[in-house]
C-alpha cells in the first residue's frame, strides 16, 4: 500500500483551515447581528449604573471598531485563546475543557460501536446467501435510521433501566452509565452505514475482479474481507466522517435525555443567556471536529484507493 503524496495531504489540510476560518467568522457575524446588547448580557441581574457600563465597555474593549474586535478575536483564536465567558467570568477554554471529555468519550464510543455494528451487519447480510436475514436487517435499519435518537433513548431507558434496572437512569459517573447513551447514538449510525456498506459489497461482488478472486480458490470469507469490503469502504468512510460530525449535535440532545454532563448543557446555557464567547467557542470547536474528521476521512480514502492519488 503506497503512501499518499505529500501534496494532496497538504491541499486537504489547507482546505480544512479555510473552512475553520469561514465557520469562526460566520458565527461571529451571526452573533453580532443578533438582537440585544452585549453590555446588558454582561451586567445580567447585577447593578446597572452608567459608571459600571463604562467600566465594562473599557474592560472588554467593546468601544473599539467592529473590525478591530473581529481581528482581535481571530488573533486570539489562532493562539488558542477562546476568551472569557460573560456569564461565568472564567476562561472559555476552562469551561469547555471540563465538559469536553464526557461528550468526546460518548461520541467516540458511539462512533466506534456504530461502525463495528455496521461492518458486522454488512458482512453477514451481503450477497444472496441468507435472503430472509437480509430482509429482516434492512427493515430494522430503516426503522432505526428514521427514528429520532431521543425516542430510541427513551425506549431503551424505560425497558432496560426502569423495568429491569440493568443500567443507571441518569448520571455520568461510571462506565455503566455510558452504555445506554452510546447504544442510543450508535444504532442510527449503524443502520445508515450498514445500508451503504452492504450496497457497496453487493456491487463489488458483481465485479469481474471478484470472479477472478473466486477463480483463485479463495474462501467466500476472504473474497468478502479482502476484496469486496475494501471497495465498499470508500463511500462508507466519507459518510462516516460526516456522521461523526452530527454525533456531536446528537450528543447534546442525548445528554439531556440521560442527564449526562457534557457540552450539551454548556451550549444550552450559553445560547439562552447570550454568552457570546462560549457560543463562539462551541461553534468553532464543532467546525474543527468536522474539519479534522473529514480531512481524516479524505486521507483514509487516499490510502484505500490508489486511483485517487493521481495528481
Amino acid at each position: 500500500m503506497g503512501r499518499p503524496p505529500l501534496r494532496s495531504v497538504l491541499r486537504r489540510v489547507a482546505a480544512g483551515v479555510v473552512v475553520l476560518w469561514v465557520a469562526a467568522t460566520t458565527a461571529y457575524l451571526a452573533l453580532l447581528a443578533a438582537p440585544g446588547d452585549t453590555v446588558d448580557t454582561l451586567i445580567g441581574d447585577g447593578v446597572d449604573t452608567p459608571q459600571i457600563r463604562a467600566d465594562i465597555i473599557a474592560e472588554w474593549g467593546l468601544d473599539r471598531p467592529a473590525v478591530v474586535q473581529y481581528l482581535d478575536y481571530l488573533w486570539r483564536l489562532v493562539h488558542g485563546d477562546l476568551g472569557r465567558s460573560y456569564l461565568l467570568q472564567r476562561p472559555v477554554a476552562e469551561v469547555i475543557g471540563e465538559q469536553l471529555a464526557p461528550t468526546l468519550i460518548l461520541s467516540v464510543a458511539a462512533a466506534t460501536l456504530g461502525v463495528l455494528l455496521a461492518l458486522i451487519i454488512a458482512v453477514v447480510t451481503a450477497g444472496d446467501r441468507r435472503p430472509w436475514l437480509r430482509r429482516l436487517s434492512s427493515g430494522t435499519e430503516l426503522l432505526l435510521v428514521s427514528t429520532p435518537s431521543f425516542l430510541i433513548g427513551l425506549v431503551l431507558l424505560s425497558v432496560l433501566s426502569f423495568r429491569f434496572g440493568l443500567f443507571p437512569v441518569a448520571g455520568g459517573a461510571d462506565l455503566r452509565a455510558l452504555v445506554l447513551p452510546t447504544i442510543t447514538l450508535a444504532l442510527p449510525i449503524a443502520g445508515l452505514l450498514a445500508q451503504v456498506l452492504r450496497d457497496g459489497v453487493d456491487r463489488a461482488l458483481d465485479e469481474p475482479f471478484v470472479l477472478t478472486a473466486r477463480s483463485r480458490g479463495l474462501t467466500e470469507r476472504v473474497v468478502l474481507a479482502r476484496h469486496a469490503l475494501r471497495h465498499a469502504l470508500l463511500p462508507a468512510v466519507t459518510l462516516a466522517g460526516w456522521l461523526f460530525g452530527t454525533l456531536l449535535g446528537g450528543a447534546v440532545i442525548i445528554e439531556q435525555v440521560f442527564g449526562r454532563p457534557g457540552l450539551g448543557q454548556v451550549t444550552l446555557n450559553a445560547v439562552t443567556s447570550k454568552d457570546m464567547p462560549v457560543v463562539l467557542a462551541v461553534v468553532t470547536l464543532s467546525a474543527a471536529v468536522y474539519v479534522v474528521v473529514n480531512t481524516a476521512a479524505d486521507l483514509v480514502s487516499l490510502v484505500i484507493d490508489p486511483r485517487l492519488r493521481r495528481s
Binding site: P208, F209, L211, T212, S215, G217, D305, P306, R307
Partner: peptide, 18 residues
C-alpha cells in the same frame, strides 16, 4: 487456480483495482 486458472476480459476490472 490449481487445476484450472481463469482469465477474463479487461484486466482493469478483472484485477482488483485497489
Amino acid at each position: 487456480g490449481r487445476v484450472a486458472g481463469l482469465v477474463l476480459q479487461d484486466a482493469l476490472v478483472s484485477l482488483d483495482p485497489l
